[in-house]
Design a protein around this nucleic acid. Structure first.
Lengths: 191, 191
DNA sequence: GTAAAAAGTTTCCACCGGAAACATTGGGGC
DNA sequence: GCCCCAATGTTTCCGGTGGAAACTTTTTAC
């Protein structure tokens, strides 16, 4: 106990960062505060992440997988053909439940977008939106229908957590309204 | 010349901020750098904006109006009934041409979202998307169709400037692809 | 058992946003 | 025409931040 070496500081830093961003916002994340929460000097963090951007990239990667997991889970509970609607709604739901984590995934100016595992995680996420069956191999470009679905869902998520809809739709019936909105998309999502 | 009093420092600060964010990114904006670019002490800025958040709010407000102007201009050049397509495309185009300005408009964690003139500016923007004819009076909630249109366009803009589409669509034929994508929406945008 | 590498700490630096106290200026009332 | 005051800048200070460098402690490999 209370050993000099923490044991799993890199993971602990991510945990602390996750807590901190949901508390104070993604932009206000501070390495020093994360380190202090763990009981370690801020310099220790730089042994595991060469700079703040690398920490945020790791956080974004983990968040992307969390999100993909949540979506996958909801997809498995749903009939194959009604997949898109539930997938889209759980995409939005994750964003609303974990706004800062969601932001961390797409805030490329804060992260190293070329990072391999980050790209992998976001590719997985994107593939989930491109309707259930479409298992894209790498070089094949996204289809029109998939882009339409993804951008609509992504737009709803962004507008929701950015507060731009607050004067229009109350939080209570937001998801219901979103469901109806997404249902409209159905007819034009044919391949 | 070279007078002690600048004359129009608040505007000059916004101009400097606009230049700086497109150069170094919205999150990296520094009041000190803006002030230095103008040739003024950083403290002078606080005479005009009580803190950084207020500066960013003013910047967001101005950017929102710039964007609304650009959209309005393109709408006026277009046939009345084909309005949505061109409106949406110019929304996206503004975002791609001025990514940091676009971000500043919607980055509510950085600005004072309750500010009156900011709300006015974003309301104007939102109204433009809700198809040409629909002149929303304040308390009337957004329609399903309008939300669908707005969120799709907004999603495309966000995904574009965040680089999430880079591996899928080259920049060159991006707008063309977006046009085709948005055209699909037409049939389901009936009121 | 010891040498090297891994993982912490301490100390330093430049920069940042912001507060406070002071200096300069220009405009309005007399 | 003068003077006072409010507006606008400046200087100086503070605590917090990311990051580099040098040092210490621990773990691991041989």
């Amino acid at each position: 106990m209370a050993s000099y070496h923490h044991g799993n500081l890199s993971e602990a830093l991510l945990d602390a960062a996750e807590v901190q961003i949901e508390a104070v916002g993604l932009e206000a994340l501070s390495i020093r505060a994360c380190a202090k929460a763990i009981g370690v000097t801020h310099s220790a963090a730089f042994r595991h992440y060469k700079n703040k951007r690398h920490l945020l990239t790791a956080l974004a990667t983990r968040s992307a997988h969390r999100m993909a997991d949540a979506i996958q889970l909801s997809a498995e509970k749903t009939a194959q053909n009604k997949g898109f609607l539930e997938t889209g709604l759980s995409y939005i739901d994750f964003a609303i439940q974990n706004p800062q984590q969601f932001r961390s995934v797409f805030r490329e100016e804060l992260i190293d977008a070329d990072d391999g595992s980050y790209r992998l995680a976001t590719a997985r996420l994107a593939a989930q939106l491109g309707d259930g069956r479409e298992q894209r191999s790498q070089p094949e470009p996204i289809s029109e229908a998939a882009l339409l679905a993804w951008s609509t869902v992504h737009g709803l998520a962004c507008l929701s957590i950015d507060g731009s809809l607050e004067s229009d739709i109350s939080k209570a019936d937001r998801m219901q309204f979103f469901r109806k909105t997404l249902q409209r998309l159905g007819p034009v999502l044919e391949r």
